[in-house]
Amino acid sequence: MSTQTVELGASRSGEPPRSLEAPSLRIGERIIKALLWSAATLSVLVTTGIVVSLLIPSIAFFQQVPLWEFLTGTVWAPAFANPSYGVLPIVVGTLTVVFFATLVAVPVGLSSAIYLSEYASPRVRRIVKPILEVLEGLPTVAIGLFAFAVLTPLIRQLTPFLPWTGPFSIGVAGITVGLLIIPLVSSVSDDAMRSVPADLRQGAYAMGATKYEVALKVIVPAAISGIIAAFVLGISRAIGETMVVLLVAGAGSPVLSFDPTKGTQTMTAYIGSTATGDIAQGTITYDSIFAVGVLLFLMTLAMNILAIRLVKKYREVYD
């Protein structure tokens, strides 16, 4: 404590002014800060570690298979005696899943979010919202089994005019993944719409807007950045989904085809079905898994960058 300044701060009673220095070293504060910093750093390190561990075998892979051949080849047959490493068939498989999943999850998820946020009574919300959040965490293998046992036969019966062959279908896999991500899309969009200030809602109602007009012309545009984020989260999950695709679209050798009634592999299904115990490290098949992994990583990264762009472009700013 310094008491050298009697003249400087003339305190009320003529006593020296009270110290303005910290009364202790605040050790606890420092420890907490260090712990939080470590946690943040750890997550960055882990992500970096994942990227590096994906890249090293990939580099080995691309020393044997030219990048161009990998990206443009139309035959994916890594396990054959005369192997071929054209990634397009499994990329198309993944894109087919994403296409059908989006077709299902975006309209249904957004509609249910609009219902929950703007139409549902507080009572209905209290019941439905937690159910949605539980559905988000359902094991995907269970949903895959349900789709294989129930959904696939059902869709086949409803569409006898389609050229169904074999037990597997990439289209049904996409629809199933779509069902799987509806709760996610719905719940995140609902949160975004609920966080739009009540003022805006009132303003629109006061101008003689109907519920539907308020929702569609005021709330959705104001919440668009959150809604796009919900779509991206959903689509990223569709890209990464493995179990459902393995069970519903099969793990047979992939053919470059846009036919949704056929079974085929996706990128994740390839990784999931190939990365088994009997694969030898250092082989080209082993390395190919990581090359596909890197491509998956880049696809989701591109997805997220696109989303950030979209959000910036369409966001309606309110303070």
């Binding site: 200030p197 805006l200 303003g203 109602y205 006061a206 101008m207 003689g208 545009p221 309606e316």
Partner: peptide
């Protein structure tokens, strides 16, 4: 509300 309009306490323009 088309016939009887309202202006609120806090200005609430739409973010448009």
């Amino acid at each position: 509300r088309n016939v009887i309009g309202m202006v609120f306490q806090k200005p609430n323009p739409f973010p448009k």
